[in-house]
């Protein structure tokens, strides 16, 4: 697959602080790429460098296989940190200005306004917009000129649950057009719900990168309960690597390749009928915390 973005040894130092340390990353066409990391881990700095508003200390990156220029940026729609617009201009005029810079046509403005449902408020000044509307206008502006790549940095920051759901739907809608999306967030749930791939940053270092599906691979954990004490029965199963009692359930960690149905079958053969048996999905949150803990 064609690499949309290739980063090599990208580094940024702010004085003695190393905000991004020798980052290597590849994003391929069609991926919805999540950048995870606690606040201050270097996500926005990285994106700022990719959009040429922050000068890298060393290292390089390529968009679409070429050196980045202002022309390549016109093919990328980006919102970093928070929406930035001229407060005294209307939503419509702000978008007209962006369209002039990007070389987009005027028809597209109506189109993107429709998409983010701001058509009714387009002639109101930007400063009168609510936070959710500002975020939506920023996404509309990023979508002008049909970008090949969309970069969103904490797009749901400060939104109410409904706003978050709306933005999430919007991202999925955009991703379904086959566009590449790079999404920076500290909200794991968000990344898990919309991303195909993700990377984890910690204090400027990239500590993990891979597909989101992999999160669910590996050993399974099953929550089991039955009448009486079954801990001995459970421990007797070859496929079990650990048994813990937690919240009134037995938490059984299975060995690689062993599935919950194997455990169920074994229990049945032993004459134990499980009253509760749930395969626990490993959440990204858990994985994320593990990765952060491992990288210490």
């Amino acid at each position: 697959m064609k690499a949309v973005l290739q980063i090599e040894n990208l580094t940024k130092n702010f004085g003695r602080l190393c905000a991004v340390n020798k980052m290597n990353l590849k994003v391929e066409a069609g991926q919805v790429f999540g950048m995870l990391g606690p606040n201050g881990s270097g996500k926005t700095t990285t994106l700022g460098m990719l959009m040429s508003v922050i000068n890298p200390s060393s290292g390089s990156f390529k968009w679409f296989g070429e050196e980045a220029t202002h022309e390549t940026r016109k093919k990328i729609g980006a919102v970093l940190e928070h929406p930035i617009f001229y407060p005294y201009l209307t939503g419509q005029k702000n978008l007209e200005l962006t369209a002039m810079i990007k070389g987009a046509t005027k028809d597209q403005i109506a189109e993107v306004l429709q998409l983010v449902e701001l058509t009714d408020r387009r002639n109101d000044k930007y400063k009168t917009y609510s936070l959710g509307m500002k975020q939506r206008l920023a996404i509309a502006s990023a979508l002008l000129n049909d970008p090949l790549v969309l970069i969103l940095d904490e797009p749901t920051n400060g939104l109410d649950p409904m706003g978050i759901a709306e933005i999430r739907e919007l991202i999925k809608k955009i991703a379904s057009d086959g566009r590449t999306i790079i999404l920076a967030s500290h909200l794991l749930d968000e990344v898990q719900k919309v991303c195909t791939h993700f990377a984890v940053l910690k204090k400027g270092n990239m500590v993990y990168s891979g597909p989101v599906e992999d999160v669910n691979n590996g050993s399974e954990t099953v929550e089991v309960n039955a009448e009486g004490d079954i801990s001995e029965v459970l421990s007797a199963f070859d496929g079990v690597s650990a048994v813990n009692r937690e919240n009134g359930f037995y938490e059984v960690k299975l060995k690689d390749g062993i599935k919950s149905k194997d455990l169920n079958k074994f229990l049945f053969e032993q004459g134990v009928t499980a009253s509760h048996l749930v395969t626990k999905k490993r959440s990204l949150e858990k994985q994320f915390l593990e990765i952060l803990a491992e990288s210490k």
Binding site: M51, V53, H70, A78, F85, T98, I101
Partner: peptide, 10 residues
Amino acid sequence: TVRQNVIDGL
């Protein structure tokens, strides 16, 4: 907005 102008492609 200077930042956004550059991001947008100036």
